[in-house]
Computed example of a mutant assay.
Amino acid sequence: MKLLGVALLAAALLGTLVWAKETLWGDGHPQTCFFELLSSLDNKFCRGDLEVVYPELGDVGCTYIPACRQYRHRLSREWSSPKVRYPQADKGADLRAGNPRGHVLTEYVRPAPPSRSGYHRYQFLLYEQPAHEAVALGAEELVSPGAWSMERFVERFRLGSPVASTQFLTKHDGD
């Protein structure tokens, strides 16, 4: 069976745990950048070791995107699509290395939460595509990317439960 691509959804949320990454300002002085992990309740969504990797941030799964070093700005305005890796994919699979291949259902759209709207959740779901089953978006889904029912899509193509999933939270870079 082939692995199907990743779905991106958004909603609001809060979180709790923290880890730090030391970075340097242009003058060489260290600046500590805090990375907050999602709460244990929200962390349950993250399963199966799916990795979403952005430049300079690494794997952002189950974290809040920090405001330091303009990470939120760069995420929403500069960086292209993240590398999506699934270490448990079949040996030699492109998805294992973060280079998934296949038919792109929709192009990547950068996270861009509106100003003063709080945190937004961006979820990545990985499904295993049934063998010899073509998967495509319908007319309604093509007209309104991101505004269609993921549940109906999964049901229509008999995808079952996600093999793996993860999420991150970010808010407008000016907030």
Rank of each mutant, 00 (worst) to 15 (best):
A93K: 09
H103C: 00
V60S: 14
D175I: 00
D59R: 13
H103W: 01
C33E: 07
G28I: 02
V84G: 12
P30N: 01
Q31L: 03
L8H: 01
Y54L: 15
G146V: 04
T16F: 07
H120M: 12
G102F: 00
P55F: 07
T166W: 00
G58F: 11
L17R: 11
P30W: 01
C62E: 10
P87Q: 13
L50A: 11
L41V: 03
C68H: 08
R156K: 15
L3C: 13
Y122R: 08
P30S: 00
Y71R: 15
S117M: 08
D173Q: 08
M1I: 05
L142D: 02
R96E: 06
R72P: 09
V143R: 11
E140R: 15
T63M: 14
W79G: 10
T63R: 15
F157I: 02
A164S: 04
A7W: 06
E155T: 01
G146D: 06
P111I: 02
K2A: 09
F168M: 01
D59V: 15
P55H: 10
A134F: 01
Y54W: 14
T32H: 02
L37T: 14
R158Q: 02
L95T: 03
Y108E: 00
L24P: 02
L9Q: 03
V143N: 02
V135D: 06
R74V: 13
D94W: 02
Q167P: 00
E140V: 13
F34E: 11
V109Q: 07
M150T: 06
W148C: 08
V6L: 06
E51W: 12
G61Q: 08
E78S: 15
S39Q: 01
C46Q: 04
E36V: 04
G92Y: 01
L75E: 12
F45R: 06
D27Y: 09
V84R: 12
G138L: 05
S80L: 13
F153V: 03
L4D: 10
Y64A: 14
D59M: 13
S144D: 10
T166K: 04
A136P: 10
G160L: 08
A112F: 02
A20Y: 08
R96P: 00
F35P: 05
Q70Y: 14
Q88D: 11
W19I: 14
Q129C: 15
A12C: 03
V53L: 09
Y127P: 10
Q129E: 13
Y86R: 09
L50T: 10
